[in-house]
């Protein structure tokens, strides 16, 4: 079965790849959002720490 036939999905290409494409897109976006949220949380913590302890001792205000 040639690749072009495979991708044609016997005429249903739009529906099959539309659903799988959007699903992978959504999963991808979710992973990026989680990673981004972690980055922000850590940056927030570092900001707080720098503010609270100028000498970098890092004790909590």
């Amino acid at each position: 079965m040639s690749w072009s036939e495979f991708f044609a999905m016997n005429g249903y290409a739009f529906y099959v790849w539309g659903s799988y494409g959007v699903a992978l897109l959504v999963f991808g976006i979710e992973i990026l959002m989680v990673r981004n949220r972690r980055k922000n949380a850590l940056r927030e913590l570092r900001l707080m720490r720098d503010e609270s302890g100028e000498t970098g001792t890092g004790e909590v205000a």
Binding site: M9, N10, G11, Y12, Y15, V16, S19, Y20, A23
Partner: peptide, 10 residues
């Protein structure tokens, strides 16, 4: 439905 049914796997 020939190929369209493969959507059910998702």
């Amino acid at each position: 439905q020939s190929e369209a049914y493969r959507i059910i796997f998702l």
